[in-house]
Design a protein around this nucleic acid. Structure first.
Lengths: 211, 211
DNA sequence: TTAAAAAAGGGGGAAAATCCCCTTTTTTAA
DNA sequence: TTAAAAAAGGGGATTTTCCCCCTTTTTTAA
């Protein structure tokens, strides 16, 4: 039966050719295309009769980078599975790629066996998330530790209510307090969280998952 | 060499005992403890000399549920790996457990081989994320599709600025518009997004990753 | 070509938020 | 036991937000 087809999008010719040679030694996979950047790749796709099943996507490329290309493919060719392949190991790059449709993210310094395993993962499960990616996803659920400020119980209660559409009078009623006490809490939290107004409080609360 | 020790925290006795029997047939694992809820389990931990390496944690339990217990264990026994085991397959439950330290999340209707695979994953990789969990994590990066409302360019620009601590007058200056035009955009967005005030706009913007 | 939508702007007034000053009582920590 | 923090509350003035009414011009879509 026919092999799973792969395209490589990477601006480093030697790396791409070497990668192609490696993948072509895998039993069930075959590189059918290589483009030096995203724009060339997309232009080529329009002229091709056979689409690849998997695209190995570099991130840093001239003219059209991996992120933009991933967004485009996700939208126009949703059946193509994208596996990011990059030198970048920072969380932001990983999250952006996954968020925009990449089904896996590998660093370029991995063992070839991991690449093979990832390719099979994409075919069989539809995704391949290494520990690095999983950890990054889990970590993205949490706010930055350094921004966490210790809030008293009543302050937190007020902050949660302040992050709703209630007026301060309504909040006072709910907390069984005088509106003037609410004024006090508000000023106290403005100072504590170093914000200028209620909008600042809401942004802090949401970004720190307090509501 | 000794087997990897496991504790089961689940309020259904028959299920827990059956699970114990199953796991005790696995070569490298041994159930050394069972508690009917989180509180009993924590009390038992304090009196035990041998801690389990893995805890299979139900979610819905009386007195002290799986989430509270996971938070406590993550804080006080960070080396214990928690694998959530639940009937609940909703995203919120999954995210809460992973966010609070669970290293995996399985539904109770899985094949025993998956459980075994998960246990090995916890021991070897430190986590086990099935496709369900991975998909949930990836999905959590995105806002709800059904809540996404099409915004005009200027509306979006205004919304982003409205989610800062700027006054409407300041925003008008930045957008080179009259404050009255800003008033118009505000009312327009209140209607469009079905919110009552600026706080509602901010919450919408942040929850939909527009800023 | 016409109608609708988008983009811009206005008056006026009430309600809410912010900001400055201040107080007392209870609880907690040293 | 004492001091500090937390928790509660007050006056009053200014600024900002919200809400109701309305307008014209340009761009887009039918």
């Amino acid at each position: 039966m026919s092999k799973h087809t792969i395209a490589i999008v990477d601006d480093h010719l030697l790396f791409a050719q070497s990668l192609k040679s490696l993948i072509n030694t895998f039993d069930d996979f075959e590189v059918i295309h290589h483009a030096l950047n995203g724009k060339i790749f997309i232009d080529d796709l329009k002229n091709k009769t056979e689409l690849p099943k998997i695209v190995l996507m570099d991130l840093n490329m001239p003219i059209m980078d991996g992120l933009e290309t991933t967004k485009y493919l996700n939208k126009h060719y949703p059946n193509i599975k994208i596996l990011a392949l990059s030198m970048d190991d920072d969380e932001n790059s990983i999250l952006k790629m996954i968020k925009n449709g990449a089904k896996g993210y590998l660093l370029k310094d991995i063992h070839p066996n991991i690449l093979k395993e990832a390719l099979y993962g994409l075919i069989n499960e539809g995704y391949y998330h290494s520990k690095m990616v999983s950890d990054t996803l889990v970590h993205s659920l949490h706010p930055s530790a350094e921004k966490k400020i210790n809030l008293l119980d009543r302050e937190l209660e007020f902050l949660k209510l302040a992050s709703t559409e209630m007026t301060y009078k309504e909040i006072a009623d709910v907390m069984h307090l005088s509106p003037k006490t609410i004024d006090g809490y508000r000023e106290q939290l403005f100072k504590k969280l170093e914000v200028k107004n209620r909008i600042g409080l809401v942004v802090y609360a949401l970004k720190n998952n307090l509501v």
